[in-house]
Amino acid sequence: MTATAEADLHDRLMALAERQIAVGEVRGVAAADPVNLPMIRHWAAAMGDANPVYTDAEAAAGSAHGEIVAPPAMIQVWTMPGVVRDGRQATTPVDDVLRALDGSGYTGVVATNCEQTYHRYLRLGERLVPATRFTGLAGPKRTALGEGYFVTWNITWYSQDEPVADMLFRVLKFRPRERKTKPEAREPYPLKPAINRDTAFFWEGVGRGELLIQRCADCGELRHPPGPVCPSCRSVERTHVVASGVGEVYSYVVHHNPPVPGRSTPFVVAVVELPEGVRIVGNVVDCPPEEVGIGMQVRVTYRQMDDELILPMWVPQES
């Protein structure tokens, strides 16, 4: 990445972080089960914690608690989602930040801090609800693992409306150090167009750095996407014109989720209206997504996606 692109990325990430901080506390989905003895027993056995106040009703009755209580360090257990996600998980303000970092190449993750505060012991039958606040993004920092950002959030667990425990959690999202590869070796781009005799001229044009629009050799009508028969005059005689290479954004989307193979998110796809009178779909690049708008003037550029494929894309005209 160029220094400008890096700076843009940093600004985008920090702006996202600011927005997510402003979101404040977001309540998650209530624990699937209330605080219960079987889970306590498994946890205590696994941890080797034999304190009878956690498992023995009689011993607990004689303790300061007067009844069985849960080990405070179990707090995360009660609301942790299972391995098989059932779609009932709530989203948190942290998700977008982690996803943006993933999409920008900071795919590595390592937990660095976990500080838990317990306000009181939990009793059997209490059903907890977690609530998440995104609290900070710091970076980029150079670390032994690679360059990365520290992402910090807080979870508060509520029983009814009473906060019973807090946790500060921090991870380092880092760019794994790149293995040295031969510069000519490119990963094959996974999103290949199907091409046949009706459309090959377009892709051959792109390969030469020309944006071609099909033109009927008889009536002269321009058409995109192209096809074998002129819908106006039935002619199968086709030719093409070279487009001027400028256009205007007619509509656009900023794709965030789900991840798309061969692409990092977010990315912009637009319907571009050409002065020749046809529309064409393509990516708007070299421009922060939030600066793209309907009516924006763009010009074509060409990007080599792998050893075989070049795609026409669009950049702001002033750049």
Partner: peptide, 17 residues
């Protein structure tokens, strides 16, 4: 497939998008 090929290479490939 040809129709999709004017969109999918640009990552425009989900119903939501």
């Amino acid at each position: 497939g040809l129709e999709m090929s004017w969109h999918v290479p640009y990552g425009l490939m989900t119903p939501a998008a």
